[in-house]
């Protein structure tokens, strides 16, 4: 019984990683860049909910939590597109290392911006009704928050798969990730597609920030950094650039991390998580579901 409930908790942690990893993997697949600032978008999402739905930061605005959730998604999507326009778009043809360093600069900028605007002290996430209960299924205690995180991620995954496969924009994304210049020749608006990708990825990060908020309650300027790195690992584990890979990698990472925290040691769980990443990459260098690309001379 205890094992089953840890599996569920691990799955919910993994679902959170999966949502963030989807953003990483989509941006990598389409813009061929590692967006290191993605973790800080999670923080932005969480802070937006705190601003809109509680009196902690801005006492004048105190709307219900769902309004905060929608605001977070919109704000993050807008900021994602803005960051792409200001910092990454001028570097379309630059080396990947230059883009990576710029992304690190953006990440520094966002973290310090949060520090100046919101302060370094911990801000409490508003209580979400229905999300902080313990349900009993038979004799199995189930945290309602974990359940909702899982539901969110599954819904997002279904919606995203549908979007990519069935809509025109989604297929444009697939085309751009396959071959950017060929897609452009076929009449795909590459810049718009990349912007849409950033908007979707950042919106998913906002959802993850919301889930992080009601699960862990305390928000600080560096909240998103560690989940960001873990989700990045999850994306690589599943095969970076692959959407189902990010989902599978996220869930796997979450379960491994939670189980090793429970059964081995809290401190050493990071070693196990990163160790598994190294081992998987050595056995299967493209990740669990990644495609192998042949080398051109």
């Amino acid at each position: 019984m205890e094992f089953l409930s840890s599996i569920i908790n691990g799955l919910s942690l993994g679902a959170m990683y999966a949502m963030i990893a989807l953003g990483y993997t989509m941006v990598y697949g389409i813009a061929k860049m590692l967006n290191f600032a993605h973790g800080d978008v999670i923080t932005l999402g969480a802070y937006t909910v705190v601003i809109v739905s509680s009196t902690v930061l801005v006492p004048a605005i105190n709307l219900p939590v769902w309004a905060g959730f929608i605001a977070a998604v919109l704000v993050c999507a807008a900021v994602g597109v803005l960051v792409e326009f200001v910092a990454y778009k001028p570097l379309r043809r630059a080396s990947s290392l230059a883009v990576l360093i710029t992304a690190i600069g953006v990440s520094y900028f966002l973290q310090n911006f949060f520090q100046i605007v919101f302060g370094t002290s911990t801000k409490n996430f508003p209580r979400v009704p229905l999300f902080n209960e313990t349900w009993m299924i038979g004799s199995l205690p189930l945290n309602s928050g974990s359940f909702f995180t899982l539901i969110f991620s599954v819904l997002i995954m279904i919606a995203l798969t549908f979007f990519v496969k069935k809509t025109q924009t989604g297929r444009a994304m697939l085309a751009v990730s396959e071959d950017r210049s060929a897609a452009q020749l076929m009449g795909v608006n590459v810049n718009r597609t990349i912007s849409v990708t950033f908007a979707i990825g950042s919106a998913l990060a906002a959802v993850a920030g919301f889930c992080y908020g009601y699960t862990y309650t305390g928000i600080v300027p560096t909240t998103g950094a560690m989940p960001g790195i873990k989700a990045f690992v999850a994306a690589v584990l599943g095969g970076i650039g692959s959407i189902p890979g990010a989902f599978v990698g996220g869930l796997a990472l979450g379960i491994v991390e939670y189980l090793s925290q429970i059964y081995i040691s809290t401190q050493w769980s990071n070693v196990i998580v990163f160790g598994i990443l190294i081992v998987v990459l050595l056995v299967k260098p493209t990740g669990l579901l990644g495609k192998k690309r042949s080398e051109k001379v």
Partner: peptide, 14 residues
């Protein structure tokens, strides 16, 4: 510092 870093990268690589 962050802004300077971004600016230098963008100016040097665009």
């Amino acid at each position: 510092y962050a802004v300077v870093l971004i600016l230098i990268m963008v100016i040097n690589n665009n």
